[in-house]
Design a protein around this nucleic acid. Structure first.
Lengths: 365, 365
DNA sequence: GATACTAGTCGAAACGATTCGACCGACACG
DNA sequence: CGTGTCGGTCGAATCGTTTCGACTAGTATC
């Protein structure tokens, strides 16, 4: 006799754990009373409470099943955090890490767990599957909210609140608002005021480019990541002639490779100032400059964004300082508000210019 | 008339979303058939399937509720990952990040989400609360399994499989086994063979020390983190006279501070070789050496562990190379096995010695 | 001593899905 | 024409909690 149907999988059913019902039975009380003991909600006499706790201990019952509990409550107790690309890359930037840290800190007080999801450019399907399979009460896009992502439609359909940081991109995502365009323009203005006119700009990744590449202004419209786009626009606002290069990832070497595209030019066409979209990229720019024998800031001025503490850099970057930890906390508290059903409105996030030792007057000539 | 009881919280009940039942009703089929359409499990005629999908679209039903689905299936679809300390610190080490990345990659294939939990030394309660509240099918201790943690008892009671990396610490945690003691001994042997006899050792944090401090061998017994302890033992196996200093965190500056405790000594008592427990710490040691005017490796040999790519270091570290990504993947596949009910046995993880430019013969005299 | 109230307990109805077994008609076969 | 098989559908039970309303006894109030 053949098997009626291939049984779905050879999964050994996890050994049966005791349930609240077992505990209640063992303690001689009703299921509901036992529940009250664990949730600590209703009035229970000390005597029964002890009985129930004793029964739990006897059966080694470790507390209510979070899944069942969540189903009943209608909240998962978890917040999904979507990061861009491979984890290694996404968090190689200490700034990203500090935002995540702030977010985690704030979520701790709700309390809510932190579900990490990666969004790899070009593979929308994967994120969507993960979003459909997992349980969470809200979603954070802590680094950069994506443009035209089907995930956003999906989440909106589910009624899940979404909180992002940076340049607003979709009305359904609430934002910790940073004036990306403005801060970038401020950096560009700083170097033009120092007399620079040949200006280069190194952007964060805008899509899924595998290597550094030169962009023309028209390319910016198709950028997937609004923050990178806005910062580029900011530079163009002040220096329309700026040459733009996109880094393939947020790492130092990517910045170096991108900078080389700008610096591999005859001296009279080479930029005398490079505005980078992050401190890590700026560090790469400085490395590239040294390799081709340029001094910073005498021959080349370099600026970043973030205000990282980079002890291995023997200079102080001119940069736009933003407190990543505070940004993460702000994200977290907006999520808390959304989860509590309070109305949340976008909040501005402050940044400050810091003049360091990597910018100086444009070289004569 | 007074309120009977303070209502628990002013939570506006999330707007009612359609359920599978609504969809079934709208499509004129039974609940079970509708379920079959979404799970794709049973035989359903194309016509009915279309009807159901149309109804779903009409009601903007975004698929089965993951919580309910998980409850029924008995699996959360999530793996908890416990990291040590603040996220910023835990992942400031690229090695930790690559392990996490490998783990995430492997979990993707199960598929399972990744629930990030922080374990701050000294606050067991917090982790325990989080573990009790969240739903997950397994727990990974990717960096270092803790010693005597109540969380381990709790999880064992729940019957949750636990997978760790590094030195085994509790029989209930399955391990990706690394011969921590052996690799550390190998490094110590390397420098002794080069003629060094005054050897210093910089360890990763063993507890919740706020700053770098000198340890005596007896202190090691109380170490919270077995990996750090085993590595220290490994050094002592070869060089019992080694002076040991504990870094307060895994960062470069911590290594620097720790090294200073060793190097602030008269030249004839100063170590001529420092074995550090990680590359990041070793980088700190090198920084400290430069500050006090010592050349590496002429005056001081330095070794690390991990085999990181540190482009900002202008030397090649002598170190023990381990592939963090592969380690993470191994963790992930063991977790997959455990979740599938297959028996999992500990697996050894290979490491390899790499001789770089930071070690050399002991200085004469 | 009747009435109102409270603390403590319990039964039953959700929460939103999955899945097993039963059922029904259509079709093939001897 | 009866029997067996199978594709397609459905009802009902189940997963493990939480919580609402009802019920009982005991105490306080007049």
């Amino acid at each position: 006799m053949a098997l009626p149907r291939q049984t779905s999988s050879p999964v050994k059913p996890r050994v049966k754990r005791p349930t609240l019902k077992d505990v209640a039975g063992h303690a001689g009380v009703s299921l509901s009373t036992a529940s009250l003991v664990f949730s600590g909600r209703g009035p229970v006499s000390p005597a029964t409470a002890d009985k129930v706790r004793a029964a739990a201990a006897a059966l080694s019952y470790a507390g209510p099943d979070p899944l069942a509990s969540s189903l009943r409550h209608g909240r998962a107790g978890t917040v999904a955090v979507v990061v861009e690309g491979r984890l290694t890359l996404a968090f190689s930037d200490p700034f990203a890490l500090s935002v995540l840290d702030g977010l985690a800190t704030e979520l701790d007080t709700i309390p809510a767990g932190l579900l990490l999801l990666a969004r790899v450019a070009g593979d929308d399907e994967r994120l969507l599957t993960q979003l459909a399979a997992a349980a969470y009460d809200a979603v954070a896009f802590p680094l950069c909210a994506p443009k035209d992502d089907p995930a956003v439609d999906f989440l909106a359909g589910r009624g899940i609140p979404m909180i992002g940081a940076g340049a607003p991109v979709d009305p359904r995502i609430l934002h910790v608002e940073v004036d990306e365009r403005g801060l970038s323009a401020a950096m560009a203005r700083h170097v033009t005021q120092l007399g620079h006119s040949r200006i280069g700009h190194v952007t964060l990744p805008m899509g899924a480019a595998a290597q550094a590449r030169i962009l023309c202004p028209a390319d910016l419209d198709q950028a997937n990541y609004p923050d990178a786009r806005e910062r580029a626009y900011g530079v163009l606002d002040v220096a329309p002639q700026a040459r733009i290069v996109e880094a393939p990832d947020p790492g130092v070497s990517a910045g170096e490779a991108a900078a080389r595209l700008l610096l591999d030019a005859p001296p009279d066409r080479r930029p005398t100032a490079i505005v980078a979209q992050s401190d890590l990229l700026a560090a790469g720019v400085i490395r590239a400059a040294r390799e081709v024998g340029l001094r910073v800031p005498e021959d080349l001025s370099v600026t970043g964004v973030d205000g990282l503490d980079l002890p291995w850099l023997d200079q102080v970057l001119t940069t736009v300082v933003q407190d990543g930890f505070a940004k993460g906390r702000m994200l977290g508290s907006m999520i808390a508000d959304a989860m509590a059903g309070r109305t949340v409105r976008p909040r501005p996030f402050p940044t400050a210019l810091r003049i360091g030792t990597t910018t100086g007057p444009a070289p004569a000539g």
